[in-house]
């Protein structure tokens, strides 16, 4: 066979094979597009979870469960079934979330959640001076929407493992509580939280004993949790810290928290 004839044969085969590939890909294309949309949604939820973890957990809790006195739960039944009617919102819940996150809330619709006149929720969109891009806000909304099956009880809510602490000791339980009870929303503890609404608590154990004469460090910390207004550190305002921790937490839990704060001496 001459070279030109070989090339004609091979070339024809290549053209036919190329056409076959294009046809096969074309047949698969609608399925691929549908899969891609689902996959993109999955990745959007993952991305939203990371954005949520970095920006929202200090007020809305590490799992979006809300923190008493600070911010509401984003995964309860009320939020998924009644919130839109309550607020009179005409569009979808996801759009509602996007809207609220974008512009923030200047006035709270549920005053039980804000402390001492601070703005209800800051604006998050870059367009209004916040830190997040629109696609990040969309992703956060997608992430919150993904709680629906837990919120409506269609799936059992798993117990989160949370930060790994030694729960056999009072300090360990106290550390877990420090996050779960929402202390992280306002107080800084190195390695756990970075908030500055209330005083930083690292090293409190060293100075607590000398603030009020006749009161040991443990007693002082205990009182500050159950009755926050008893002693206000200069530079901070009264009535900012929720007054009801004695009701929310058991005596044992408060003692665990005290034990945890007592070991943070650095």
């Amino acid at each position: 066979m001459k070279r030109v004839q070989l090339e004609i044969v091979l070339g024809t085969i290549f053209v036919l094979l190329s056409a076959a590939i294009v046809i096969i890909l074309g047949i698969r294309e609608p399925q691929r597009l549908a899969d891609y949309v689902l996959q993109q949604r999955g990745r959007q939820i993952e991305f939203g979870a990371a954005v949520f973890q970095n920006n929202c957990t200090e007020c809305h809790g590490s799992q979006g469960q809300g923190i008493t006195g600070i911010a509401p739960s984003l995964r309860d039944e009320h939020f998924f079934t009644e919130r839109l009617d309550e607020i009179g919102w005409g569009s979808t819940l996801e759009d509602y979330i996007v809207s609220v996150v974008t512009t923030g809330r200047q006035v709270s619709t549920r005053p039980q959640y804000v402390g001492g006149g601070t703005p209800a929720m800051p604006t998050w969109s870059e367009r209004f001076g916040g830190p997040l891009r629109d696609d990040q806000i969309r992703a956060v909304a997608a992430f919150i929407m993904n709680f629906e099956q837990y919120a409506l009880g269609q799936l059992p809510t798993p117990v989160p493992i949370g930060p790994v602490v030694d729960e056999s000791t009072p300090e360990g339980r106290g550390q877990a509580l420090f996050t779960q009870a929402g202390c992280v929303a306002c107080h800084t503890i190195q390695g756990i939280s970075t908030a500055t609404v209330g005083p930083a608590l690292d090293g409190l154990a060293n100075r607590a004993g000398s603030i009020v004469s006749g009161m040991s460090a443990e007693e002082y910390i205990h009182e500050s949790i159950v009755d926050p207004n008893a002693h206000i550190v200069s530079g901070y305002s009264p009535d900012v810290m929720p007054q009801n921790f004695a009701e929310i937490l058991t005596e044992d839990q408060i003692n665990d928290l005290v034990a945890f704060l007592m070991v943070r001496t650095q």
Binding site: E7, L10, F14, V15, S18, I21, L25
Partner: peptide, 19 residues
């Protein structure tokens, strides 16, 4: 004719790599 052959070859190889 040789160039047409090369075009067919190039197209096929690219599509096969992606396939």
């Amino acid at each position: 004719s040789h160039e047409i052959f090369l075009i067919a070859l190039g197209t096929f190889v690219m599509l096969a790599i992606l396939y």
